[in-house]
Design a protein around this nucleic acid. Structure first.
Lengths: 234, 234, 234, 234
DNA sequence: GATGAATGAGATTTCATTCAT
DNA sequence: AATGAATGAAATCTCATTCAT
């Protein structure tokens, strides 16, 4: 229980940090401002999070947790449906998550860039020692592949229940799905918080299109007709 | 001609900066080091680029120029081919460009995130005054849509020559293509410079798959058989 | 009491600065060196004094305070003597002060040149913005006239006790006294720290002469004989 | 004749420099500004004067020359008068010179401070090597004592013609006279260009007083009565 | 000799991070 | 655990001075 109070405060701080990051971006955010937004001192802030980067990782962890929650929710909601439906729902879940959480989506995309090549031992210049030793970094590593695995597993379920083509590789398709999501999200972020269409294209159309495409690519009922139908999108 | 010499020097500096950024990342790069890498003084460096951020924008501009050049090249190489071939070649060009220029690809993706909603006049907090006043920022804004426009135009050409389905919207498809590219690139970057496969998936397969998919989605000769064939990817 | 510690540190810094200025002069003194002489960092130095000029003003303020202290001391030592004696003692105090504190005397003379016409609102070009906003500049303005006023008051006392001629104007005589002091000090400074006589004239003779002259000019017991006697000076 | 053109240009530059120094002070004056005020480039400026300090010395030299001219003029105007009159006239000449040439008066006072102790070999930190090697510095040294010597000589003439007390030391009295002048000038400068009285004292009264005092101190006709008369100054 | 570009030295600022109390 | 002060590293700027052409 001792921990609870600490956790609450930690959450307060993270929320303050999120709000500041959202407002001015990571680079422009000052520890000072985050501290005062959280109603504490800089030093106290540091006693909770050992560095700015670490604070960012904490947010990233939260983002990933949040995404995982959304995934579990989606899985739960679709556990009685066919695999294909659940998989498409997962993709939509991620997209919606990114739409609704700009900071989180940026954070996650950045994180996945950041950890690149960690395993290979080279080109690690961008990860500080401190970062790598951080608790959140470890926690992140523990769950970073979860959304991936969940998706792949669900694809397998779809193959088992016959709703997904048997010859596709779950991992490959998961990556393919992610690439759709990331592309969509980046366009979304490039378009900013303003929901106005980009180049006269409503990004929601892109979302719908991507979802249909994903389904078509995996579904065992896929037909040329469906694809052609998709192309008439407006 | 007067500023040729200046331009040459500017390029030298940018190249030095690229090399330093590539080596240690933007944040860890010291202006001092960039200067000495370029064989000049810090002050001289500042007389060319008013800030580190500005230098980064210059690199971004170069990246975009470089991408544009690649686009024009691709267009030229395919001017006698069908529109569909040229469009797919453009997409491949972009992907290859990102593969070969990690710094440039990161730079460009960051830029497109950065400028989000700039046009709409809101939410510009993350742009420093310095950035907004930078010459390169203006130059960037002038050409940032070029790859987009070129792609859309080529799609139209493909519709004119019958190689691309007539009912698709060139702009929408361009965005869709970008979303493929960005997704692929992000995964690529997440995978780092090490060419080891991600989750046992060779990203090159993803690239090939995406190219085929793009072709299929636009081509007037699209058939279900092709799509099904695609799915057998390894 | 709260700021006692701060004041102590401030004084430490000022002393370090004085020592460096004395050693190499204002222009050649590096903030870095002053900081390290004070056992602190450059940044800390800047947190106490916003600029080199500001630091100089702080020293000037100290010089003036120091002079004022010497004045009060002198007044106290002579409070039981006649006004004329006290006034002459004040002048001597100032002269001795300048002899013993080269840096302070230069500082004060420079200050009185610097602030010329400040009050009149014109010709302030030579005052940096930083200077004008400096706390010490304000503090200086508050006490800069103190030695003047003290002298004039003491002359009045002398007139009251009959030791000083009744028809002279205290303010005018104060200025006259200052002009003696400044002239003497400037010659002293021109002569440098080396005590060698200037043009074979021992400046101490000039000092004595000036003091006698001042006394003669004001004293109610002034006689021609005294003046003539004075002229036989070596 | 070749030299003449050069000299003209040199004079132009010096005048430009004087104007800039007058406007913003030595320290705030930028070589750039001086150059452009003179209608030349910085580099050209440097080809004439090797450093800012050197330029200042050139002005000082001019100031001293100018003062010397005034002295010679005064001597010439008073060559038929008694020595005492000529000496007092010299003092007045200097005072008037300072009144009319603020920059020159500051320059000269500073110069006489600057050269302090040059002979003694110690404490020369404030004189750059470059300065000491400068042509103007040498020229200055050649004439710096001229006003002194001229005054002393004139005092001797006064002693010879019986107008000045025989037992006074010409050098000492010259110094004494200078000390009056310097004091007066400093007060004048402290009072700024605004001619308003300082502490309700019209500095012109101080000037007149000093002149009378100088005369009284040296004149063979000096009487107590005169001194007393002097004191009723307002 | 003139010009535009570059240099060197140091002032000043900004922050993340740490220390002392 | 909280506070105020300090540190260190690097960005940035200002100018006198110098170089290359």
């Amino acid at each position: 229980m001792k921990d609870t109070k600490k956790t609450i405060k930690e959450n307060n701080i993270i929320e303050a940090a999120e709000s500041v990051f959202r407002a001015v971006g990571f680079k422009n955010a000052k520890m000072e401002d985050i501290a005062s937004e959280a109603g504490i001192t800089k030093v106290t802030l540091y006693s909770y999070f050992q560095s700015k980067e670490n604070l960012y990782l904490a947010i990233t962890y939260r983002a990933l947790q949040s995404l995982n929650d959304a995934y579990y929710n989606s899985l739960d909601n679709n556990k009685n449906k066919k695999g294909i439906d659940s998989v498409v729902a997962l993709i939509e879940t991620f997209m919606t998550f990114c739409e609704e959480n700009f900071l989180y989506s940026e954070t996650l995309l950045e994180y996945f860039s950041l950890v690149r090549s960690t395993s290979s031992g080279q080109d690690q210049t961008k990860l500080t020692e401190a970062t790598k030793e951080s608790l959140y970094y470890m926690k992140l590593q523990d769950i970073q592949n979860l959304p991936f695995k969940l998706t792949a597993k669900e694809i397998s379920r779809g193959q088992a229940d016959g709703s997904i083509l048997p010859h596709i590789d779950p991992i490959f398709s998961t990556l393919q799905g992610w690439s759709f999501i990331i592309g969509y999200t980046k366009l979304l972020n490039a378009n900013g918080s303003n929901k106005s269409p980009l180049f006269n294209v409503d990004l929601n159309d892109l979302k719908i299109f991507n979802l249909k495409l994903a389904r078509t690519l995996m579904s065992s009922e896929s037909t040329l007709a469906k694809i052609d139908a998709m192309n008439v999108h407006s």
